[in-house]
Nucleic acid binder design. Structure first.
Lengths: 104, 104
DNA sequence: CCGACGCGTCGGGAAAGGTTGACGCGTCGG
DNA sequence: CCGACGCGTCAACCTTTCCCGACGCGTCGG
């Protein structure tokens, strides 16, 4: 298991897979229909997402449904947060406020 | 220019480089001192960051200073935002903070 | 019970990424 | 003017990633 969330998000196919799963659970073949990709390729991308904890699988009959598991994305959010003040004036005020809160 | 921000962030060395640049501009050799890496490796990581627009270079004498350019990180933030409602943690913290502010 | 279906996984080949040593270029100090 | 310094870049190598065809396994329908 790699648990490398940033690495999992580096691939555009995997990002689109997560976007598709936002609307609800889907089967592998259903997801594969979204791309010009073979089913094995999609299956392996899903394995990477599973390794990063971004997806949970639910076998049902001969299908296998994948569910979005967004919690690990918090790691990305946490990493991103200290940078927010450098590109968004509006968020900068909030960022400063949070700093003020933390140091109280 | 690759402009692939997600790909640029996939490497832990590049993430640490950005973290280091948050504190101010630094020279290549200075940044290389932060890692067990040769200077060429760091130089090429910086080239990737430059390709993604995450870094701006300022030649000064025989040094070359790199500045953080956080604007492209907004793309990551924008992609991440629709997922926030699925893990809620930070959203809840912000909500709590706003409530506290209102009642002051 | 048997063939079709939906899967994951494995082996291999192509492509991309990471690191290194060697080189060349501009810059500074003596 | 010359040697040392700080850089970027290149060729080469190794590793990783990405994709496919082929296979095997469990499941469903007739």
């Amino acid at each position: 298991m790699s648990t490398d969330v940033f690495g999992a998000l580096a691939n555009p196919v995997r990002r689109r897979l997560l976007e598709g799963l936002r609307e609800g659970p889907r089967s592998t073949g259903d997801l594969a229909g979204m791309f010009d990709l073979g089913r094995p390729a999609v299956s392996e991308h899903l394995a990477v997402l599973r390794g990063a904890g971004l997806v949970r699988e639910e076998p049902r009959g001969r299908h296998r449904f994948y569910h979005l598991e967004a919690a690990p994305l918090a790691e990305v959010e946490d990493w991103l947060h200290p940078f927010e003040r450098y590109w968004n004036r509006r968020l900068r005020a909030l960022s400063d406020l949070l700093d003020e809160e933390d140091s109280r």
